[in-house]
Design a protein around this nucleic acid. Sequence first.
DNA 1: CTGCTATTGTGTACACAGTCACAAACCGTG
DNA 2: CACGGTTTGTGACTGTGTACACAATAGCAG
Lengths: 235, 235
Amino acid sequence: MKSIQKQLDRAQFGGKPVALQTIERLSTYRRVLEDLHAKGIQYVYSHQLAEYVDVTPAQLRRDLSAFGSFGNISRGYNVQRLITTLSELLGTSNIQPVALVGVGNLGRTLLSYRGFEERGFSLRVVFDNDPAKIGRVIAGRRCFDIREAETVLRDQPVEIAILACRPQGIQGVVDRLAAAGVKSILSFVPAIIDVPPGIHIEMEDISAKLEKLSFLAKNRPAKPAYGYEKGRTTM
Amino acid sequence: MKSIQKQLDRAQFGGKPVALQTIERLSTYRRVLEDLHAKGIQYVYSHQLAEYVDVTPAQLRRDLSAFGSFGNISRGYNVQRLITTLSELLGTSNIQPVALVGVGNLGRTLLSYRGFEERGFSLRVVFDNDPAKIGRVIAGRRCFDIREAETVLRDQPVEIAILACRPQGIQGVVDRLAAAGVKSILSFVPAIIDVPPGIHIEMEDISAKLEKLSFLAKNRPAKPAYGYEKGRTTM
DNA sequence: CTGCTATTGTGTACACAGTCACAAACCGTG
DNA sequence: CACGGTTTGTGACTGTGTACACAATAGCAG
């Protein structure tokens, strides 16, 4: 058995543990706050914001309180300031460079996706292992050999990488990226990966999501689930 | 405030509630079992399979026991049979037709993704709202007007749909799909959606995932997390 | 046939995310 | 200036997902 770091299910902030689900909700809060800001709204109460994102007001307040006190006790939360705070927490106050591994169909789609820039990310460095692609310029970025990751990333440091390549040799890719200083990886590759120490990997398996939805489509609760309450999917 | 069904966090099976996280793990088990089957392995013990997917053996056994008893008490689990069982549970014993809404960059990438067929799904029906695309044949599928969803899906019923379109008018799209008999929706559209009763929606927000990873990259626990234990990311 | 080993399925215990509810605090008003 | 109304932040509680540990049992060897 290999000795590798246990995949965390909790993060740390100021020494206190924070549930990863909390972090995920922060993203949603920020996105909705951007909408409110665009509408010129300056203050929101927890119950208003909670209504939008379909959580309880208490949940929202507790999520935020894990990082400090940001609310005015009778005006609620300053939209502009809360956006700034959340952006700092999520590390997207400044545009953050991201590496992409694999320039197949999916890779090119990601390269042309404008949503990243809007949310503070930019695919700056592109890798592949296909000699036909290495050296060429794809969607404005020069494509590097994945085997030179360590060299390339020395000049253009990157903390986050996205994997959109084939499963073959994926472990080597991950190890290389880790050695090159990458801290977090988003993988679209359905494969088992040993996680190097200090690295966090997030899997994105679309087929698995479909399987879950398939199960839910077949095994729907008989009665419409405890009467019709409010419910909303946010993102 | 609208009266819509509360988004579930639990599924039902045989009257008993099942955690959604359990369902998600079933996908992983099945995928790993396929690998083992391909290697000619006929039986696995819970601790072996658990090792691969990085859960405790007890967790694995409990997950399966929510749906019945499948293990032989001293040979372990029959790989072939467990795959069949899991496929039936996930509803992918037979290829399942899926509808796709939106044939932009992402939509076309999904259309050309071969991984779906391998896991029991097939993008059969394609919609868009762009007059330039409606009626044309894209990647072998004729593209229909989303406004005709109800008519089209009467001939080709579909329980699952994927949203890969613009946020504008997304609520109308969802309502139309629900009216057309769609039960589950996987949405790549970052937007707030009111969930019609009886429908389950799964959000896929890649930027949100990056934000989470960004947070983790910045707020890494100081010490290497309780010593180096085993850990592995599976999919 | 009997005894031994190893594994499953599950009752039980625990830890923690989410909810409730309230004290403290701010604002506006009279 | 005091007071009523409203909101935040948080201690206490609850529900539930996960881990532990063992009884029940199948296989196998002698």
